[in-house]
Design a protein around this nucleic acid. Structure first.
Lengths: 355, 355
DNA sequence: TCTTAAATTGTGTGCGCACACAGAAAATCT
DNA sequence: AGATTTTCTGTGTGCGCACACAATTTAAGA
């Protein structure tokens, strides 16, 4: 039998109102009675009935989310996860509104807009370090709980971070490449299409990647890092890589630090690709295609959908259910090859409908 | 604003009772009114409030689970997942009772016991094919929904299967071994400690493993399969393997089809291990230890915790929330190396507390 | 047409909890 | 001691829904 407040009240010889006061620490209870009630509560093993509690509270929870560039597949998947969470928590009165931004200036504008709408909680990816930290501070000043996804910042005033350990994802990439290339060859770490300067997680990945090769004894691998900017065309990329090949004839692998590995594959010739061991991120369509045709060797899954999903759920957990939230929640670094790819792409399993 | 039954009733010019009858298809509603109500419902986008609904129903859900050998780590983890689910659905009135069995005879005894207790739903792993199928039929006759975990059977009369695609896990294992061994060497597939004859999933793994090597062109690998029985000691295993090494001097890898890979490692000498590429299952303590010291090369994670967790949640979804349940839910085939191991071991992320 | 049965519709109560408010008891002040 | 404040405790209502039961309308029978 489930224990109700009424049961405790009867057992303790008081009314439900008094028990209620004890549970919610509303005060106005004499010490003796308080103690008695608490004793009975632990004795009977009382657990708040979240169902009834939620119904009675009858409150809504407005969550604001700030994402990036809505045409990008990665953020599209994140949005999907958020929608699944929204769907799953609909009956808790959760309302999620999503804004998108494209650059630091836009970021500042949208964050202001979000603050003006006075949401109950906020979730975003602090791709821009400076702006992100400032936004976090603003939220904290207004006591709005904040969840970070995708990019980890050293900010104590947040509810939690949900995403990968970027440093370790660089280590895993290095480990996989270590598998596939000969001794005394070299590896290219490529930041493709992103303003790497301000992106903390890319720097962490590079650190992890380099550290791995520095620490192993069994093989000697030279690591080169390079950035290639957004605006350039496939032809530019081709020429750029040709330059790298010439400068480093012993190059046997490329680690693309984001989801753009397909761009590398698509600008090279077959005979060039055959010699190259390529590791990238994210199960987006072109990447999977090249994985299946063996041009990309490994992909690391960043679980964008799960990031979005868990972000929302953690907010609900914290605010509505008053549960403790783990401050740092590292998602797994899934190693994906052709043979296990499908199970990550169709990963509905991760999102139980009951909520 | 959330739409309530009352809103629909007002809009359609009827009482809440009538709307209720339409929603639950209780009949006794004139066709004209029924149509009108349904129209208003879709118009306003009505969604049943699960919170209020659950509270009003005030029913309990008794789930019986049958697991194996409670000292085994794998089933221990499964139990953990079940407990997490139980915890998460406590307020829905879910009560889970777990029984353990050790052999086919015991299985039959325990299933009888379960049926006698008339549970609302049943979950178990049909390790014994014959007995499993018979149990499923019994459940079906009594219209008790049944969830299978871990071992997939071709049984249409079940609610769903949750676990890995065993065939494909054999394929992935082969792929990983393919990575690590030279041309014209051979691989041993080892069924350790289990009565492989009656275990469907072990046969599927073997099929996948063999198929992979049969289909690839780039390398020629000979596959040997062997069973080694439960009762034997480490010394027996040592002698057995020595025999295999003599018979197949070109042996370069061992695929242990269950969680006992550590037993192989622990009975061999360093110089023997150095030549061997070992792939096994499950993130149990001894396996992880050998993975970290490079004696085991890859582990495949079977997600026992998630199996247990999702099994219970799917039952709740089906019975209490009346949601559609996916009949086959394959969990991912996580490829685990030292560098990404930790994130799978501490995978609380997969179990959102909100439910 | 009136009676009775059948079909259809409306009303009331409880699920367990949160919270506002009413009420009782104790403490403080004239 | 009586009046007043302060502290403490009990009661009632609503959250949205499910379901039993009452009330009404319609159809069928005499």
């Amino acid at each position: 039998m489930r224990i109700r407040i009424k049961d405790i009240a009867d057992q303790a010889g008081v009314s439900v109102g008094t028990v209620d006061r004890v549970i919610h620490k509303r005060g106005n209870v004499s010490p003796a009675v308080k103690e008695k009630v608490e004793k009975v509560m632990t004795q009977l093993g009382y657990r708040r009935n979240i169902i009834a509690s939620t119904l009675a509270l009858n409150r809504t929870l407005r969550i604001s989310v700030l994402l990036f560039d809505n045409k990008d597949y990665f953020w599209e998947q994140t949005r999907l996860g958020i929608e699944k969470a929204q769907d799953a928590t609909h009956h808790y009165g959760v309302e999620v509104s999503i804004l998108y931004c494209e650059n630091p200036g836009d970021f500042r504008k949208k964050t202001k807009q979000i603050l003006d709408s006075r949401p109950d909680a906020i979730m975003f990816a602090p791709l821009y370090k400076e702006e992100g930290l400032r936004f976090i501070e603003e939220c904290h000043n207004r006591s709005i709980p904040t969840v970070l996804i995708n990019t980890q910042l050293d900010a104590p005033d947040t509810l939690c971070y949900i995403g990968q350990d970027s440093y370790q994802s660089g280590v895993v990439a290095a480990r996989l490449i270590h598998f596939g290339i000969p001794d005394h060859s070299s590896a290219l770490l490529l930041n493709l299409d992103s303003s790497a300067a301000n992106a903390q997680h890319l720097m962490d990945k590079e650190r992890g990647f380099r550290d791995y090769f520095n620490e192993i004894q069994s093989k000697s691998v030279h690591v080169y890092a390079a950035n290639f900017e957004h605006e350039k065309s496939q032809n530019d990329l081709r020429n750029f890589l040709s330059g790298v090949f010439e400068a480093h004839p012993d190059l046997r692998s490329i680690f693309v630090t984001n989801s753009r590995a397909y761009r590398v594959v698509e600008c090279l010739k077959e005979d060039e690709l055959e010699k190259l061991f390529i590791v990238g991120f994210d199960l987006i369509e072109p990447n999977i295609r090249h994985l299946k045709s063996n041009r990309i060797n490994f992909l690391i899954n960043q679980n964008p959908t799960l990031q979005g999903y868990l972000g929302v759920l953690n907010i609900v957990n914290h605010i509505l259910l008053k549960k403790d939230v783990t401050p740092i929640q590292y998602l797994p670094l899934d190693i994906v090859v052709v043979e296990n790819c499908e199970y990550y792409v169709n990963s509905d399993y991760a999102f139980p409908a009951v909520v």
